[in-house]
Design a protein around this nucleic acid. Structure first.
Lengths: 133, 133
DNA sequence: TTATTATTGCAACAATGTTGCATAAAATAA
DNA sequence: TTATTTTATGCAACATTGTTGCAATAATAA
């Protein structure tokens, strides 16, 4: 995390640092609306561009659960730019509403005859650890 | 398919029949832009409302592959309204661009300790049957 | 055929996202 | 450190996507 921006070769500006710190603060995925609330003041356009470049550089990744707004979460180290081969599934809790990346022991092998699968994304909804307790 | 609209208890209008026939014509998922192209003329608002009610009534379902526009496909019979427990995965071909529902023999069992999984959605990208040949 | 109910299309708006360009700030070279 | 180059920011303006109230119209039920 120390100097993630420089590592990814993008300029370190106060705004980008602030947005990054918001993502690091949460350990689950968050929608843009939460980023906006955390920023005391911000420029809409700059925020869009910041999100865009963070996505491009593999700093964050986007999680779209059908019927929900986009959520964003910090990428783990194995997340190479533009090739998000997740070893986790994306989970949305129907009770608390939190979207998170859940590590999974062994990723299921899906075999489709004659197809070539390059990327796999698994999304689940239900009750999270806390809400299921 | 004969009288799907009446079965789902929504009025049968010329426009709805036309939109439905477009979805039936394709045997893969299609984005709104294709529906628009197939309709010689249409009202934007009515189309949105038609898609919305088709989704609500379980006539079509929405497929959102990260980074892509929404695609829509006719629901199979097992698709009960509001509870799309797919026995297929959603596949996007990186070469021809087509999004489709691919039937899968046995759905993988994903177990997350302490979580309760209610719905599972699996998305894959790669090369489809045709493009991989 | 008539009465009731639901759909359509218009106008107007709201939310979300993009682009060109001048200014300001950050990174790099001297 | 300063000067130069490169990149980011903010404004204005626009594009796309989706929504709502309401009057007119069409579909269904009686």
């Amino acid at each position: 995390m120390t100097n993630l921006l420089k590592n990814k070769k993008i300029s370190e500006t106060p705004f980008r640092k602030e947005v990054l710190s918001i993502f690091t603060k949460y350990n689950n995925a968050i929608p843009l609306s939460i980023v906006e609330k955390e920023l005391r003041e911000y420029n809409r356009i700059t925020l869009y561009r910041t999100i865009k470049i963070f996505l491009e550089k593999g700093i964050i990744h986007e999680i779209i659960i059908t019927g929900e707004k986009s959520n964003y979460a910090i990428c783990q180290e194995e997340c190479v730019t533009n090739l998000h081969y997740h070893q986790h599934i994306h989970f949305k809790c129907n009770r608390c509403g939190i979207v998170s990346c859940v590590e999974i022991g062994k990723f299921p092998a899906i075999i489709l005859p004659k197809y070539k699968i390059e990327q796999l994304e698994i999304q689940a909804t239900g009750l999270c650890k806390k809400c299921n307790a």
